[in-house]
Nucleic acid binder design. Sequence first.
DNA 1: ACAGATTTGCAACTAAGTTGCAAATCTTTT
DNA 2: AAAAGATTTGCAACTTAGTTGCAAATCTGT
Lengths: 133, 133
Amino acid sequence: MLKGAKLYCTEPRVSILQAMIKADRPLARNQMVKLLGKNHFDKVTIYRTLECFLDAGLVHKAFLQKRAWFFELAHHCSKIQCHPHFTCTKCGSTECLIGVSVPMIKGLKKGIVIYRQQTRLEGLCQKCNSVTN
Amino acid sequence: MLKGAKLYCTEPRVSILQAMIKADRPLARNQMVKLLGKNHFDKVTIYRTLECFLDAGLVHKAFLQKRAWFFELAHHCSKIQCHPHFTCTKCGSTECLIGVSVPMIKGLKKGIVIYRQQTRLEGLCQKCNSVTN
DNA sequence: ACAGATTTGCAACTAAGTTGCAAATCTTTT
DNA sequence: AAAAGATTTGCAACTTAGTTGCAAATCTGT
Ligand SMILES: [Zn+2]
Ligand SMILES: [Zn+2]
Ligand SMILES: [Zn+2]
Ligand SMILES: [Zn+2]
């Protein structure tokens, strides 16, 4: 993947990419750090690595939560639209709604060009909902 | 409005609410500070004021941009869904797409309850698009 | 193994938002 | 109008995500 994207193939990049592939869900930096365990990299390195993955189109910034960006591999996404993301307001977990389709928006003013459309949902997840009563 | 929401009617609250009504677009704290001009309030006060407006249902957190929340009056919004927001990736401006309708998502797993659905668009605004070539 | 290009890690920084607490302000009662 | 009780304000100090500059380390192609 790295070579395909013409990126230098370095240890942090390989490890971070592996972690993201293994996790297969959106991750924020501190979650990556946990997954990387003893493979410790400076936070600057992680951010810069993610940025270069972004430029190469390998990952997307999926969403911002508690002021931290969550990144996910781009391979489940179409160019103009990722799958929707659902966040539980009670437990804070976020889930990718892969396979749920969202029509592109219509009726915009002329002159605007859309690069990307994103849908976010908030509510109660199955667990929290069943506990609620 | 404040009395209707059973809130203490204080100078910061009145001024901030007036600024938001006058602006009629999503504002982040530092934009409010500019609009308030010589009416200077501590940032803590502004955040706490916005939070109490939130609790009272007067405003919504519209979106997060550059790690700052933008707040807007809730009176254009339905309970489950605000209008979509469009952000220009070139100039960074964000626009409310009032009157553009978005169907609620379907086909979710059972057990999930949706409180809120949100659509975000990214692309080029009219200005930036016409300058581009 | 070398040279040139790129990436890494450190330290210092920026900026949004939060917390505790005493002083100030608001509302209601007298 | 003044007092009492409840709420809000502003300050200082803090937390945390993310950024910047730069020298040292690593990677690639020869
Ligand atoms: Zn939950
Ligand atoms: Zn996702
Ligand atoms: Zn623009
Ligand atoms: Zn809006």
